[in-house]
């Protein structure tokens, strides 16, 4: 089929990208993995191999244990809230309501904004104030509308910590799941719902037996995307809280930056990065494989 002499041209044109990704993604990942097995825990590179020593130390490190716990808590809260809020909003917006465009755009707007911007804003909103300032931020708002019982220390309370960061992240990403679900809902063939209605199914039954199964692949995709975002979360933590009291808002990505570029523990930082990559891969690789098996 192909014209003579042109067989290699396409490959020639895609080669720079392949080489660039090959080096900058796969090459660098291998390099980082290599570093994670060395003794490079000082400013000067030291490539003496120490096996899994850095990993062993890391899993014994209390800060890292807290980080893993925080990531878990964050992921659970963030992913489930985004899914539920996104689904709820999508279903409501799908009811042929007035001002649909306004609601949709409003809920999606935070997606356009940088994590640093939202971090700065939410840092002030969740600033609990102090006894000389009184209540500020949302606490002040709660006080004004008589919801005093909701006031709390937010990210400055070690028992809340990362959960406050999760709220900011939900603010930013729940519109995204709404958009996904809305696209999905709009993709359900009308006949399907009508057929169900004719069969005498009420709205709830239609939703449960027709809509939800139809949305399952979207939910699956959203879990992967949101899950991998929450594993990587960094910018928001930097701008909003940092490590927080007793590392209550610390996450592996931040620990990696901190220990590598401040503590000079390059090998330790590299091991954290590789663990993060491993966790992300657990989510992403099966997803990539199934998605492209289907298409091919």
């Amino acid at each position: 089929m192909q014209i003579k002499g042109d067989k290699w041209t396409p490959i020639l044109f895609i080669t720079p990208s392949i080489v660039a990704v090959g080096i900058f993604v796969y090459g660098f990942i291998s390099w980082t993995s290599f570093i994670s097995f060395t003794k490079w825990n000082n400013v000067m590179p030291d490539y003496t191999l120490v096996g899994f020593e850095n990993y062993r130390k890391l899993f014994n490190n209390m800060r890292f244990q807290i980080d893993l716990h925080n990531t878990f808590v964050f992921t659970v809260i963030f992913v489930t809230s985004c899914l539920l809020i996104g689904l709820l909003l999508a279903v409501l917006i799908d009811q042929r309501i007035k001002g649909e465009g306004i609601f949709r755009n409003l809920f999606l707007l935070p997606m356009a904004v940088s994590f640093i911007v939202s971090g700065v804003i939410w840092r002030w909103l969740f600033n609990p104030g102090s006894f000389q300032l009184g209540n500020i931020g949302v606490n002040q708002l709660f006080e004004k509308v008589g919801l005093n019982f909701l006031t709390c220390g937010w990210y400055t309370d070690p028992n809340i910590g990362i959960k406050a960061v999760a709220i900011a992240a939900i603010w930013q990403f729940s519109g995204y799941t709404m958009a996904l679900y809305l696209a999905g809902l709009r993709g359900i063939p009308l006949e399907l719902r009508e057929a169900a209605a004719i069969d005498g199914a009420n709205q709830w039954k239609t939703f449960y037996y027709i809509t939800l199964p139809f949305l399952r692949p979207i939910t699956f995709g959203a879990i992967i995307i949101l899950g991998h975002i929450s594993l990587k979360i960094f910018d928001l933590v930097v701008a909003m809280t940092g490590s927080g009291p007793a590392f209550s808002s610390d996450v592996p990505a931040f620990f990696m930056y901190d220990t590598t570029f401040r503590g000079n523990h390059f090998a330790q930082g590299a091991s954290i990065a590789i663990i993060l990559l491993f966790l992300v891969s657990l989510l992403i690789i099966p997803y990539l494989i199934t998605t492209f098996r289907k298409e091919a």
Binding site: G27, T32, K232, G269, A270, A273, L277, V280
Partner: peptide
């Protein structure tokens, strides 16, 4: 999808 921490040192 990779966390960029995993390539940042190199």
């Amino acid at each position: 999808f990779i966390p960029y921490q995993s390539i940042i040192i190199p």
